[in-house]
Design a binder for these strands. Sequence first.
RNA 1: GACCCCAUCGUCUAGCCUGGCCUAGGACAUAGGCUUUUCAAGCCUAGAACACGGGUUCAAAUCCCGUUGGGGUCGCCA
Length: 453
Amino acid sequence: MFLPSALTQESAMSDKPRVRFAPSPTGYLHIGGARTALYNWLYARHTGGTFILRIEDTDRERHTPEAVQAIIDGMKWLGMDWDEGPIHQSERLARYQEVAAELEKKGLAYKTTKGAEEKGEALAFRVAAAQEKVVFDDQVLGKVEFQDEVIEDFILMRSNGWPTYNFSCVIDDHDMAITDVIRGLDHVSNTPRQLMIYKAMGWETPRFAHIPMITNSEGKKYSKRDGAVAVGDYANAGYLPEAFANYTALLGWSPGGDLEIMSREVMVEKFTLDRVRKTASQFDFQKLEWMNGKYIEGLPAAELAGRVAPFMKSAGLDPDARGSEWLEKLGQLLKERAHTLVQFPKLSRYFFADDYEVVPQAAEILAKDTAPAALKAALGALEALPEAEWTPAKLDPVLREAAKAAGMGFGKLAQPVRAAVTGTNVSPGLFEVLELVGKERTLARIRRVPGVG
RNA sequence: GACCCCAUCGUCUAGCCUGGCCUAGGACAUAGGCUUUUCAAGCCUAGAACACGGGUUCAAAUCCCGUUGGGGUCGCCA
């Protein structure tokens, strides 16, 4: 039976890009890796292609199951999914041996003990035979050209029997039918060697796209000492994955125009490799934090409350203590002031408990001669307000009236009340704060100020 | 050192491919102001860049060459 439509579909499908993220499990998913993964993922989703996760664990000493898990966790946190994998190179040894044998048989590779640290023979690739100028067309860099004399014979199979990166990488990219290799710029210099292997095997080469480095404030490759490097650190510090991904994507790529904050969908729609820059970019914590704040503000109340809750818990506050509606209101109150999730518990201890700290500035306000009078005026007005009317809408006129009656500007009354109830001179709007602290606690806190009760 | 890559405000970038609309736009940060119960947010304003030198052209941030500067890689790591 002839099925033209199925055939058409099939061949259309084979044109779809296949990309991979191939981290080495050395401990965690770091910023650079996260962005490389993201670009691959975005590219796959934009083109309707396939995204593959491959674990490059051919180095016997450096890989652990925990490290693999950390990478998977990091990717999931960032909202990435993959269509194939994770494929572990450590499970494909037989295939690497097979290709090695073929190259040796062709005379393109040879056994050697040269440069050996340990006993045993390694298999080296014979560059001399294939030597010529290497040129490739990079999707980000454009034409990249290497002089012909610079590359020397290199090791394919180590004397311990395992393949080296350049070898296993090529075999896997070929076997997995990878069409586009999107990786960090630090891999450019590996490309000529890899190209030689493709040629030696008679394999079609993928397209390459080398994306620029992420640097520290000194313009050097970003590393541990420059600040948080693992994506897990950002999760713990209260960054939203969508904000982190958005910010990171913008390090080296832009959708054009003035667009910065964009949904995942828009990012997928807009992402193309030809808009990736060639220049390294510095990781700017301030801008990340600003963007995170924007994302926090944009979260629906219930969603925000849900994200904040775990951070409350780990700070020793019970997010469920006053009910979900209360927690949502609290979130709304603090969201414009918090740039990260960890700041929520820091800004809200006095809503939960009486053991909050009193900052010097607040103590100062309460120690002023004028404080008791202001507090007494407020206290009288607040005592008279029924519990059922303990809302910002009612508290507002009541307190303003009290200030007027006492012959003072509202600010003169508000600051002492704020200091008495929150222990700080800085808080969200007073009426909203009083509402959430509750009538009973508010009154008690005002009464206990010396000279008032 | 060799090889490779890069070069727009302090930072992220738009513009560059397809020269003219660029007295170079936006964002973060900074400074000042407005608003105001404090803070935050918001709004307004300011300063702030085409690395340098040649060339091509009527015209160059945009194209070419050089210089300088920066980065990456030089492993039986990835």
